[in-house]
Simulated scan of single mutants.
Amino acid sequence: MGTVTLGVSIAVPEPYGSLLQQRRAAFGDPAAHGIPTHVTLLPPTAIDADALPAVEAHLAALAESVRPFPMRLSGTGTFRPLSPVVFVKVVEGASACAWLQKRVRDASGPLARELQFPYHPHVTVAHGISEEGMDRAYGELAEFVAQWSCTSFALYEQGADGVWRKLCDYAFGGGAAGDLPPQGLPHDAPVLY
């Protein structure tokens, strides 16, 4: 059956997702319209197409074990000069994202893999464009703020055209949308039950 290229991410909800995608395009990033605005949990990963049912079962079981948690984005950062990326920072929910991405890539699961760089949750707003465009992105979004209750993640497949398309949403099983962790628990830690 061949291979497919998959990714797992937390979508940035509306109106923030479209706003950041439009800004990314305005900065001159040609990939903006093919990549939904997101926080990566699994970077592009090639797998055998016949392993897709195992991937879906793995992600469904993981999502069921997690409670919704607060996410907040604020300000900008960059990976330059190591990597030509400007991003919006995840200032709340980062440790929950780190926890999730480790379990998505669990060594015993169908998406086991090593990362090229240490995991750092973020929302890319410019990648591989001119230095002037990168500087604009960094400056113009420096005051950007968004917050929401993260209640799910999604599985995406990259098409031959380079566009990422959602295959499935995985809602967290630990509570209804909008639930927050009980008082006294760290807001960045997902709660298992």
Rank of each mutant, 00 (worst) to 15 (best):
V4G: 03
V12L: 03
E14G: 06
Y16D: 06
Q21G: 14
A26F: 03
G28R: 10
D29M: 03
T37Q: 08
T37V: 11
L41F: 11
I47V: 15
I47T: 14
D48R: 12
L52A: 12
L59A: 11
L59S: 12
A60R: 10
A61R: 14
L62I: 12
A63R: 12
E64I: 12
V66D: 00
P68A: 04
F69W: 14
P70W: 09
M71H: 09
R72K: 14
L73H: 11
T78S: 15
P81A: 14
P81I: 15
L82S: 15
V91L: 01
V91R: 09
A94Y: 07
A94C: 02
C97V: 09
Q101G: 11
R105N: 01
D106H: 01
G109P: 02
G109L: 01
P110A: 03
R113G: 03
P118N: 08
P118D: 08
Y119M: 00
A126F: 05
G133C: 03
A137G: 05
E143M: 07
E143G: 10
V145Q: 11
C150K: 02
S152K: 14
E157R: 09
Q158L: 08
Q158D: 05
G162Y: 07
K166Q: 06
C168N: 01
C168M: 00
F172T: 04
G174P: 04
G175L: 00
A176I: 08
L180N: 10
G184F: 13
L185I: 15
P186F: 13
V191N: 00
L192Q: 08
L192C: 09
